[in-house]
């Protein structure tokens, strides 16, 4: 909720109010929100770690993982962080054109990642691992699904941001809005790195 609201609800910057810390309200709020998100993913990851071995006669993680594939999709997501950095730096140079280009590329790479996840889920399902098959599968799909939803929401926001920049509809400081989107996007990437390491790379 807050992530979308945050960028729009800038508190009266044009009136020249300075803040006690010097940080803008929006940025502080985004950091707080991301702090809260850490606990959300913390809870999901803990659940997964508790249940990853609970699949007695059913399929286990090591039987379905396709590490090379997931590595390449993780790499794509990481690259999107790079393009997000380029977008932020273009925005800082007031280069609307390249900001839009890099935001679009970021969104595209993110969409590819989500597509990869959809593919992965489909193939796991075909292999016999449904959402309700075992505790392991329930907690795995929930964890990665939550992450996928975060990425998807991010992509929709990125695409809308491109549209808003084109139509000159951005409310508040454009540079800061792009930067805030960047923060969110990097957070989602970092969480994925954590998930990739804990869920895929460390054997059960």
């Amino acid at each position: 909720m807050a992530d979308t609201a945050v960028h729009s609800d800038a508190h009266i910057e044009h009136a020249g109010h300075h803040t006690s810390t010097g940080l803008s309200n929006n940025k502080l709020a985004m950091w707080m929100f991301l702090g809260s998100e850490c606990l959300l993913f913390g809870g999901l990851i803990s659940t997964y770690m508790l249940y990853r071995g609970r699949h007695s006669a059913n399929l286990g993680p090591d039987q379905v993982w396709d590490i090379p594939f997931t590595s390449s999709s993780s790499f794509v997501l990481l690259m999107s962080s790079l393009t997000m950095v380029l977008a932020v730096s273009s925005a800082n140079r007031d280069d609307d054109r390249n900001t839009k280009v890099w935001l679009s590329v970021t969104a595209l790479l993110g969409a590819l990642f989500v597509a990869g996840q959809v593919y992965e889920f489909t193939s796991f399902y075909r292999e016999g691992l449904g959402f309700t098959t075992s505790l392991f599968s329930s907690s795995f799909y929930t964890l990665t699904g939550f992450h996928g939803v975060h990425v998807s929401v991010g992509i929709i926001m990125l695409m809308s941001l491109v549209g808003m920049i084109s139509k000159n509809k951005v409310v508040g400081d454009k540079k800061e809005v792009v930067e805030l989107f960047g923060l969110y996007w990097h957070f989602v990437d970092v969480v994925w790195i954590l998930i990739f390491t804990l869920v895929y790379l460390i054997p059960a």
Partner: peptide, 15 residues
Amino acid sequence: LTGAINLIVTVINMR
């Protein structure tokens, strides 16, 4: 949650 973020930012930034 939204209230928490709001009030924290208010107190930290708007004294």
